[in-house]
Design a protein around this nucleic acid. Structure first.
Lengths: 163, 163
DNA sequence: TATTGTTATACTCTATAACTATA
DNA sequence: TATAGTTATAGAGTATAACAATA
């Protein structure tokens, strides 16, 4: 156990880097994300952007690239590359929307559905292990705090309003 | 308001990306970190790695590059570049350790101390705004959960054990 | 004119490898 | 041999700008 690590109060200067919430949230987010990314890489040889697209398509069925980007907060360039890579590996199929040929529908192939079926238990198990020590109330508070802090951060310094 | 966004329960498939904790923690960490980074860039024209080094040296006094890396979880190449940039801007000074000339002590210059004195209120104010809506109990739970989840994530898939 | 999507390019942060100079 | 630190290079992930095709 390393329980005593962060228990010291702030110094007279008013701030300790290791107790600074933005720093800690950033460390937590990257640590969790990278540890999950390692599992995905080992088991499926798949990177996180591709993982997100597979997870999304598995839930939602076919979607346009734009809808993928909106739903998992990925830039359209990243979506384009992730979908391209998944298509190269025959995990998704693309089909132009006849009603608007600018759009392309993306959907899991049979092989993609098979990967999805493996991905879900892996992700669920990871999430379960991650939160194994938490009470029901802990989970409820965590759920609420993530949303509150996320909204707050965007209020304080929104991502380049008029760029 | 977008309050209803995350309130739906998991589907029959067992997972919704936007309710998947690793995904949410990653989004939260990057959103908070980037919003704080924007403030630092606007006010001090300083990037996050440099900010971390200044904050650390302001607290701890002079440190070797290795100690900086250990204390704020930065790779030695990143420390080297951040310290180099800060030295170029005359915010830190370097001095070889006479007792072991491989090591270099890094310390804030007078100008660096001045920046540090401005950085602390900015950071404190940011943290205050970020957590403005939280009760004392919320804060205590958040503090504990960050540590628990961080430790858990590293237990589940440690960063390349034998690389 | 505006929008979907692709490509080229660049920037940030992270990481590996090769190197130096010490020890 | 091993360590502190630098540099070159490469890899994610994110972003802007220019573009083609379509509306």
């Amino acid at each position: 156990m390393v329980a005593a690590r962060n228990d010291s109060p702030p110094t007279a200067e008013g701030l300790l880097l290791e107790r600074f919430l933005p720093y800690r949230l950033n460390m937590l987010g990257t640590t969790v994300s990278q540890s999950f990314a390692r599992l995905c890489a080992r088991r499926f040889n798949i990177a996180l952007p591709e993982w997100r697209v597979v997870a999304l398509l598995g839930q939602r069925g076919r979607l346009t690239s734009k809808a993928i980007g909106t739903r998992c907060a990925m830039h359209k360039t990243m979506v384009s590359r992730a979908v391209g890579e998944l298509e190269r590996r025959r995990l998704v199929e693309r089909e132009a929307n006849p009603a608007d040929k600018r759009e392309v529908f993306v959907a899991l192939s049979a092989a993609g559905e098979a990967i999805y079926a493996e991905i879900i238990p892996l992700a669920s198990a990871y999430s379960e292990r991650l939160t194994a020590g938490l009470s029901d109330e802990d989970r409820a508070v965590l759920d609420r705090l993530i949303r509150q802090l996320h909204d707050r951060a965007r209020q304080i310094a929104p991502p380049d309003p008029q760029a």
